[in-house]
Design a protein around this nucleic acid. Structure first.
Length: 645
RNA sequence: GCCAUUGUAGCUCAGGGGUAGAGUACUUCCUUGGUAAGGAAGGGGUCACGAGUUCAAUUCUCGUCAAUGGCUCCA
């Protein structure tokens, strides 16, 4: 007999060789039906694997993340089996489970799978699933494994096998499909009741763009049809928050084929929104001791040779701009730092001057690959809310802390709660590849970690992710569809001060190198606005939104009064307009709701007589009748609260 | 850049070898109304762009530009 310890610490005795599935059965038939895999002493394994010693056991069902993972991984095998049946001769790469479903990379030879083929693959999968094919695990010698896939002619699996040690190779068989796989898998395919192939894409074998591109099929499965339907509804809901869709609806920005891909055109309302964001940050920065500077959009090639950016940008970027002078070339600036370095070196500095903080909303141009462009989140021309702080090594910590305070103030004013903070440090085993002294690196890394600790933020520390020129901290958020984007960034830089030979005179009357901190709380205006749109569904905070209120006269008879109200609101710097169309109130309200205008002011006979407005809040409905001054106060209070949160 | 898909009215989309349609938006008229769509009439399209096949191309083929989902990349 062996002792099995459950998560609640109860212990039960079982025969040696018992499986997790048997154990589930001993608890209840229902549980046994739902068990997909189990964790035995910390390792997730098949529910059908015999347990031969005392162990801690946790059973997983579809409701556990591990259970979903098992189910989707098994579904990937099922999809491969279906594809193999429909496309004989297909070769298979890897097929893991992912956050929402699974994929399989397949070499179809000269065949092509397109969206029209999804249905028949789904049908085949369901047909195979209904056969309740059991997943059978087999330990295989390396020799036999190589033999099997050599006969099958699958060079991808052979490549994977060659990297494995003899004795650790396992195959899983389900129906007619045998795959190299570590497992675990569900007991059989019977639990897969609903199947959806989500998309098809090209994916380079092993992520290497010099190797063959395979066909990657994405899919997802569920134990109930209802859950699939709910998933698809959620997906549709998420698509409604897409900033590209809302940006068009609310007339914030557009693109033009003639202007070029990845070059956004900001429409009046979008420009207004962006300008308001900029002004907010400018005010915060002014208070924090930043000095605005302005630099040109181009710079001589020599500038970028000095900064070292030339090597990285030379080939794969916008071509240099030539002039009538032989050999003279300019680059569109891909970043602002070199220009700011030149501002710093325009005069000598004493340690008493530091820190110096130069801020600029600097527009930069980078030739991103055409396939990578994406709405406002990945563009070729964008504006960074850039600033460069020049300070002594001892000031790095305080400066870093002050920058973080700015980022937090912005996130708070915009109600951004869902973000992750990543601290990127040196690879401790390979300090050679970094520039700057060990002493300064240690000082800066310690400063960042301490600041993160003091601010109580949840952070992820990644070793080896630092830039070669210094450690950094990035603020990441997810968009509506769960894709991750980097917004704010704070980077310590020992490289550029070196390359530009920046100096200050210390208290010792000797020359010293300053440390440079690059920072952009928004990251870029484009990406930030995109993420803001998706987080708010276009319902921007009152202080930010282009139109705060719309006046809706009940009929044309009250147009005069509406204009009077508008004037009073404008005098109080409230952004409002009048809907003068000869439409019914219901229609005007509907249109204003869809345009996400926060306040609707209905005016008719009743209001005109007493100098009132009837107020409706977007998404909430009627909130009663107020005097104009009361409404102004309401708006001002709300704005005040939002900004000083 | 690569793989797949797509491009028809301002927007959302239908159609299809014989030069185009709906809803909505817009204009005008009727209606003058009380918290999510009142009614009628009208204007609006080089069917992304270029070439080829054809008696005839918006429709088929190829190329270009652009978009969408991924891969690679992201200083």
């Amino acid at each position: 007999m062996i002792s099995i310890t459950f998560p609640d610490k109860t212990v039960r005795q079982y025969e040696e060789g018992v499986t997790a599935l048997d154990i589930a059965k001993s608890i209840s038939e229902g549980l046994a039906r739902n068990v997909v895999s189990a964790k035995v002493d910390g390792e997730v394994v098949d529910a059908t694997r015999p347990i031969n010693r005392d162990a801690e056991l946790q059973l997983f069902t579809w409701n556990d993340n591990e259970g979903k993972s098992t189910m989707w991984h098994s579904s990937a095998h099922l999809m491969a089996e279906a594809v193999e049946a429909l496309y004989p001769g297909a070769k298979f790469g890897i097929g893991p489970d992912i956050e929402n479903g699974f994929y399989y990379d397949i070499d179809l030879g000269d065949k092509v799978i397109s969206e029209n083929d999804f249905k028949k693959i789904e049908d085949k999968m369901l047909e195979l699933a209904r056969q309740k094919q059991e997943f059978v695990r087999k330990e295989v010698s390396k020799e036999d494994a190589i033999k099997y896939f050599t006969e099958k002619g699958d060079e991808y699996k052979l490549e994977l096998i060659n990297e494995l040690e003899d004795g650790e190779i396992t195959f899983y068989e389900s129906g007619n499909f045998t795959d190299l796989c570590r497992g675990p898998h569900v007991p059989n395919t019977g639990g897969i009741k609903a199947v959806k192939i989500l998309s098809v894409a090209g994916a380079y074998w092993r992520g290497d763009e010099n190797r063959k591109q395979l066909t990657r099929l994405y899919g997802i499965t569920f134990p109930k049809k209802k859950e699939l339907d709910e998933f698809l509804v959620r997906l549709e809901e998420a698509k409604k928050r897409d900033h590209r869709k809302i940006g068009k609806e609310l007339e914030l920005f557009t693109f033009s084929q003639r202007v070029g891909a990845g070059l956004p055109l900001w429409l009046p309302k979008g420009a207004q929104l962006r300008e308001r964001l900029e002004n907010f940050l400018k005010k915060v920065q002014r208070e924090a001791g930043y000095e605005p500077v302005i630099t040109p959009h181009i710079g001589k090639v020599e500038l970028y040779k000095t900064s070292g950016h030339y090597d990285k940008y030379g080939e794969d970027s916008f071509r240099p701009i030539s002039t009538p002078i032989e050999g003279e070339e300019f680059f569109l600036k891909p970043m602002n730092c070199p220009h700011h370095c030149e501002i710093y070196s325009s005069k000598p500095h004493s340690y008493r001057d530091l820190p110096i903080r130069y801020a600029e909303f600097g527009t930069v141009y980078r030739y991103e690959q055409s396939g990578e462009l994406h709405g406002l989140t990945r563009v070729r021309g964008f504006t960074q809310d850039d600033a460069h702080i020049f300070c002594t090594p001892d000031q790095v910590k305080d400066e870093f802390k002050a920058v973080m305070a700015i980022v937090m103030k912005i996130f708070s004013a915009l109600d951004f709660k869902d973000f992750t903070v990543q601290i990127s440090l040196r690879d401790p085993d390979d300090t050679e590849k970094y520039i700057g002294t060990d002493e300064n690196w240690e000082k800066a890394e310690r400063a960042i970690l301490e600041v993160a600790e003091e601010t109580g933020l949840n952070t992820i520390v990644e070793y080896g992710e630092a830039a070669f020129y210094g450690p950094k901290m990035d603020f990441m958020v997810k968009d509506a569809l769960g894709r991750k984007w980097q917004l704010g960034t704070i980077q310590v830089d020992y490289n550029l001060p070196e390359r530009f030979e920046l100096e200050y005179v210390g208290a010792d009357n000797e020359k010293h190198r300053p440390v440079m901190i690059h920072r952009a709380p928004f990251g870029s205006m484009e990406r930030f606005v995109a993420v803001l749109i998706e987080h708010t569904e276009g319902k921007f905070p009152l202080w930010l939104t282009p139109e705060q209120a719309i006046i809706l006269p009940i009929s044309e008879k009250y147009q005069k009064y509406a204009e009077k109200v508008l004037k009073l609101l404008n005098n109080s710097e409230i952004r409002a307009q009048i809907d003068s169309r000869s439409e019914k109130t219901g229609k005007k309200i509907r249109d204003a709701e869809l345009k996400r205008i926060p306040y609707m002011l209905i005016v008719g006979e009743k209001e005109e007589g007493q100098g009132l407005v009837s107020v409706r809040r977007q998404g909430k409905g009627d909130i009663g009748t107020l005097s104009i001054q009361e409404f102004v106060d309401l708006i001002n209070d709300e704005v005040e609260k939002e900004i000083n949160k």
